[in-house]
Deep mutational scan, measured.
Amino acid sequence: SSRTRFTDYQLRVLQDFFDANAYPKDDEFEQLSNLLNLPTRVIVVWFQNARQKARK
């Protein structure tokens, strides 16, 4: 499967949200999905990866 290429804007929004809340609710994932024009699944995985990185 091909990797999603995030724009700088998408990454900034995701990172800002993550800094405020590492565990979004379903409706928040949906809002981010609509805002960033990305599939919810891609955003869910991004947050999983970000939490892994933050733990190191």
Rank of each mutant, 00 (worst) to 15 (best):
A50Y: 07
S33M: 02
L32F: 03
R3P: 14
R55Q: 13
N37M: 11
D19R: 12
A22S: 10
F17H: 15
K53Q: 09
D8Q: 11
V42S: 14
V13G: 05
R12D: 13
S33Q: 03
R51G: 03
E28Q: 08
F17K: 13
F18P: 01
L36Q: 00
V13L: 10
V45H: 13
F18S: 05
R41C: 12
R5L: 15
S2Q: 10
D8P: 06
R41K: 14
Q31Y: 07
A50N: 12
N21F: 03
R3T: 15
A50W: 04
D27N: 10
K56H: 11
T40Q: 07
F17E: 10
N49V: 05
T40P: 11
D16T: 09
S1R: 10
F29I: 14
F6T: 04
F47C: 02
W46R: 01
R55F: 10
D26C: 03
F47L: 02
S2I: 15
Q31F: 14
V44A: 09
F6W: 02
K25V: 09
S2F: 07
Q31S: 10
Q48H: 04
Q52A: 12
F47N: 00
L35R: 14
S1D: 14
D16I: 07
V13E: 06
A22T: 12
W46C: 01
N49P: 00
R5H: 15
A22F: 05
T4D: 14
L32W: 03
N49C: 08
T40K: 15
Q48S: 12
L36S: 06
T4P: 08
E28L: 02
D26A: 06
V44N: 09
Y9Q: 15
R5V: 15
L38T: 08
K25R: 13
R12F: 02
W46L: 00
F18E: 03
N21V: 04
Y23T: 11
T40D: 05
Y23I: 14
K56A: 13
R5G: 15
R12K: 14
P24Y: 01
T4F: 13
D26Y: 10
F47P: 00
K53S: 13
K53Y: 09
Y23M: 13
V44W: 10
R51W: 05
Q48Y: 04
D8K: 11
Q15F: 05
V13M: 15
F18T: 01
F6V: 07
N21Y: 02
Q31C: 11
L35D: 14
D8L: 05
R55G: 09
D16C: 04
A22L: 09
R5S: 15
R55K: 12
N21T: 12
N49M: 06
Y9G: 10
D8C: 12
N21W: 02
A50I: 06
F6D: 04
T40L: 10
A22Q: 09
R55A: 08
P24H: 00
Y23D: 12
V44I: 07
